[in-house]
Amino acid sequence: MKKLKVYSIITTIIVLFVLLQGSIVTKTGSGQGCGTTWPLCFGEVIPYNPTLETIIEYTHRLISSVAGLLVLILSYWSWRKLNFIKEIKFFAILASSAIIIQGLMGAGQVVFGQPPLIMALHFGFSAISLAAVFTITLFTFENPFNKAIVPVGRHFKRFVIAITIYAYTVIYTGAFVKHMGASTACTGFPLCNGEFVLFSQGTIVFAQMFHRLAGMLLTVLVIVFVLWILKLYKHQRLLVILSFVSVSLIFVQLLSGIGMVFTYNQNLTIGIIHALVISILFSLFTYIVVITRRIK
C-alpha cells in the first residue's frame, strides 16, 4: 500500500503540472507551436530548431502523454488494491475517462481548431481528471478500519454537492473567458471600465462580468460553508480543517483574479495561480462530497 501512496502522490503532482502547462500554453499563445500536426510536431518526432512556442507546446504534449499513462495505471492499481472503498470504481473510471477525453480534445484543437466553448470544456476535463486523481490519492491513506466518514445533515450534504457543481461551472466560465480573449475586456474592479455592465457592451464584456459575478458568488458560498461547519460541525476535526483550506483557496482565487485585472493579464504567475487554485478547490470539494455522503 505504501508504494501505491507514493505513486498516487507523484501522479497527482504530474497531473497538476499538466494543468499548469496547459495554462502556460494558452497564456503564451503556443497552442499552434507544433503547427496542425499531432502527435508529430511539424511532421517530426522531435522538432528541429524549435521556437519557444514550439518548445512549450511540445513539452506539454510529452508531459500530458506521461500523465495519461500514469493515470491509467493508477486507476487500475487502485481499483485492485482499494476494493474495500466502494467509491473507488467510480473514481478510477472517471480519472481514466477524463484524461483520455482531455487528450483527444487537445489533439482535436491542434488538428481541426476548436471554438472557445469547446476549449473551455478541455480545461474542464483537466479539472475533472485532477479531482478524480486527487480523491484516489486521499483514498490510499484509508484502510478498511479507518475510512474517513463525516456524519452531517441532509441539507448540508445537498449544499456540498451544489457548491461542488457550481465550482465546476465557475471553472468553465473562467476558461471560456480565457479562450475567447476576454481576460482584458474590463479594466478596474469591481466595475468594468468604470461601469457596472453586463449586456450593454457586447459578448466579450458580458463574459468577463458574468465570470466575475460567478466567482464572487462562489466566494460567498464557501464562506457560508465554513460558517455552517463552525456552527454545527465544529466537533468534526477533518471537516473543520478542510473548511479552512477551502476558504484560504477561495480568497487566493479572488485576489489572483483581481490581480489579473490590474496587471492587464500580463503577469504569467498570477494567471497560473488563478487557473490552478480553482481546480484544487474543486478537487477538495469533490472529496468532501464523498466523505459527507458515507454512512457508518
Score class of each variant (00 low, 15 high):
Y172W: 05
Q21A: 14
L281G: 15
T54K: 05
E87V: 02
S64Q: 12
G108V: 03
I101V: 09
Y7N: 00
S200M: 08
L239K: 11
K81F: 14
M216Q: 04
Q109C: 02
L138Y: 01
P116E: 02
G174T: 07
L230K: 08
G43K: 05
K231F: 00
A92Y: 05
W77Q: 06
T11K: 09
V152H: 03
K86L: 06
V110S: 11
Q32A: 14
F262E: 10
A127L: 02
W77Y: 14
W228G: 01
F282Y: 15
T59Y: 03
I101T: 06
T11S: 14
L239M: 09
C186L: 06
V15S: 03
G113V: 11
G215E: 01
M260H: 09
K157S: 05
L213C: 03
V45K: 04
L249Y: 08
L94E: 08
G174Y: 01
Y48Q: 13
S64D: 04
A275M: 06
F210M: 06
S279N: 10
M216S: 09
L117S: 05
S283T: 09
L227D: 03
F145P: 14
T292P: 03
Q266K: 14
I280R: 01
T51K: 13
L62C: 06
Y172N: 10
R61L: 09
E142T: 12
H155R: 00
F189R: 07
S256D: 03
I93C: 04
H211R: 10
G22V: 07
I118L: 14
A148L: 09
Y166F: 12
K157T: 00
L281I: 01
N49P: 01
L276G: 00
S200H: 11
I85H: 15
G271T: 00
M119L: 15
L254D: 10
I63H: 08
C41W: 09
H211V: 03
Y166G: 08
A167W: 10
Q21L: 13
V15L: 02
F282C: 04
I163T: 07
V277S: 07
F210Y: 10
L284F: 11
G271D: 10
V247D: 00
W38K: 05
V226C: 05
S200E: 15
F262N: 14
I101D: 00
F112V: 08
F125G: 13
H60K: 10
N265M: 07
K296W: 15
L4M: 13
